[in-house]
Write a protein that binds this DNA or RNA. Structure first.
Lengths: 231, 231, 231, 231
DNA sequence: GATGAATGAGACTTCATTCAT
DNA sequence: TATGAATGAAGTCTCATTCAT
């Protein structure tokens, strides 16, 4: 989370301190509840109560429930992009290593944290809240995909990767991330009895497959697709 | 869908027939609406109206909106596996071709149809209905994964595939399917500005990547996709 | 009021009877309360309670408080215009008599009834509810002024009246009507101690003044205004 | 307005001066806003902000929003009559001219200024504040009407006017004034499409009609009503 | 069985008023 | 005295569910 909340302060300027901390406390409470119950099912009053304030106070800091949600997204995810992107600006290793690091860090920073719940939430409720969906698309999806695309482009440019279609390549990287979120938040909670998926291992395996494919040899790869290409 | 709905009949003698058909008509209407708007946003009255009955009648057959939802999922997801599995029992080509066919057929029969909405619906609402999630896991996910596993096993056994971890391999295949559903039902409505993803092409590309990886490799990388290169 | 409400019925099709009567009962309750407390200060629930139904029922018949108000206006005033206008289509007497009849009937049918409260209400709250103001302007003011204008035009055409500016003439007729409403609903409640204004007498006197002026003779009418004649 | 407001001073030593001026500044801000938006729609915080103080300070000086309203009306309506009355004590022209001057000056000094908002405000809110209405009646309406009555009496005495009922004559003069206020503050915002009413012209026309009537000839004024004729 | 009018809890949001600083 | 963060009652509107007909 971006905000640093220090709810327990007893110094002289107590009121001011509280005011500084309020948004962070509300954001934290909102993140918890949104992830736990979804956007529509989370009641504004409950967010306020969990943050230890009254209903009215919530609206003092966030003009509507939707604005609160946007703030949560910014605080949990999109606010970090500048830093995260910067790390890759200066990456010097192989592009394969870069892709591995991207997915690994994504898991550590988003997938494994509460922030991942936000993405799952969008998957679930986007269609009912078009404005939020647009916001998320613009604030999170677009920058994220841009970064993936830059990595793939680098691999193609350097000759490390085959000259693939970039957009579909991006989706190939995205798919396992979405899959993990789905496991964790939707099916995972009660999927099978066997917890047979260790995310870190899955990501490693996924990167491996992504880079090298399932096939043993270069083989006589079929001329892939002479089919559909329907529109 | 398993139920056969014939909503447009009102002749005198057909009254009894109608009574028999009621639950099916309600289920069909509910499926449409749940897929279209999600669980919370679907109003009971609208389901009833689309089924051609009154609100009261809906509650005559389903004691609550939740029960209706459960019934929809139960009614719409099983029964296809026996047939689909059988087709692969007798497959004779290469395992690469088998995998390609599996995903292609999945798209044609599930991904591209209304049935896909049910899966998306589970993704969205599973956490609110643990009982349903378990049911879905057992009835749909397990058989589906078993089939994928059999295909991969065949490839490994025949030496076509590298000796990968089977379970993670299954997830590698599953991920793009989930991703497509997500595109179609959740983010799709407003994702990007450009509808830059053609499912059939994506699946083909995905299978290609799955089989051969992104890396140029030692290999004579197939000229697989010299297409689109859209931006 | 246009609606005929018969709240007390015990015949077989009781429910249907109630349904017929509901809008009228709600309209009557709303009229009372709007006149008594104004638009903004009238709570929807109170309207419902006075009509003997629950909050939800009100919104079953009128989709919003504003729509309820519009319905009240139509029911109390503008719905009568067709009939009222018709009466003047066939008027055969002098235009002076016509004008006298117009104002007299206005008092009997609107000014002296609860409907007058609606006009007063618009005077008070129009600026806070622009949509309602526009509605009232279009539905009530415009037709009313059109009728007045027709009367004045008739007088001018027949030579009974001086060739006055029609629009200002309309306002001359309107002013005492507004004045009466103001007396009745705003200042009247506690104006002075002496109820020194009898509306019917005021109207008669006003018509007289309107027709003949205050001056004793035709005198040397000052060349006062040979102006505008706009419109 | 009686209070002199100097809202824009914040120098160090002027602190004490400010304190004295506070109530006046608040009253001025409140007057502006009440006239502009009405009582209910004016928010306490906005009044405070416009006066350059905080919300808390407003309640330091006025115990509630209602009290503030009363104070505004009390502060804004008296004091002008002595001067205005004096002007007419010494009037020497014709009574017709006197009446014309009275209405013209009223428009210049009241109707066209912010003061007119107070009267409109009384019209709107009087029924909710009976005490204020009584106060206004006594302090403003009564003296105003007395002046009009004196003018009419003068006309009758001198033989310029017909021997009309004085009280109703007063109301005939009052009506167009009220009408103008109504136009300006209530309906005006969206009345008609065309701003077809120029107050000065209207007043002139009104005076003309008042003096000479609509009818062409002195005619045989119908024996219509030598008053009462009620109902 | 079928209907649909009626219900009322509950959601979001506003804002006059309070009170610790 | 002045502040402004905090409160919470109140308002409009929705919708799953009930029940008299």
């Amino acid at each position: 989370m971006l905000t640093q909340n220090s709810p327990e302060s007893t110094s002289p300027a107590k009121r001011e301190r509280r005011k500084q901390a309020r948004p962070g406390e509300l954001l934290a409470a909102a993140l918890d509840l949104f992830v736990e119950k979804g956007f529509a099912a989370t009641r504004a009053e409950e967010v306020a109560r969990r943050a230890g304030v009254s209903k009215g106070t919530l609206f003092l800091y966030f003009s509507s429930k939707e604005e609160l949600f946007k703030a949560v997204v910014r605080d949990s995810i999109s606010g970090h992009f500048p830093v995260w992107n910067a790390e890759f600006e200066t990456f010097t290793g192989s592009t394969a290593g870069m892709l591995r690091q991207f997915m690994t860090l994504w898991w550590v920073r988003v997938g494994a944290t509460k922030a991942s719940g936000i993405t799952k939430l969008m998957l679930s409720e986007a269609s009912n809240f078009p404005e939020l969906a647009a916001f998320y698309q613009q604030e999170v999806m677009a920058p994220g995909q841009a970064l993936i695309r830059r990595i793939l482009q680098r691999g193609v440019d350097s000759g490390e990767f085959r000259p693939i279609d970039l957009q579909y390549g991006v989706y190939s990287v995205l798919a396992p991330m979405i899959f993990l979120l789905t496991r964790k938040h939707a099916m995972g909670c009660c999927a099978g009895g066997n917890d047979d998926l260790v995310p870190e291992v899955y990501i490693a395996a996924q990167v491996d497959t992504l880079l090298n494919g399932l096939c043993r040899a270069p083989s006589s790869t079929p001329p892939s697709l002479k089919k559909t290409q329907s529109t």
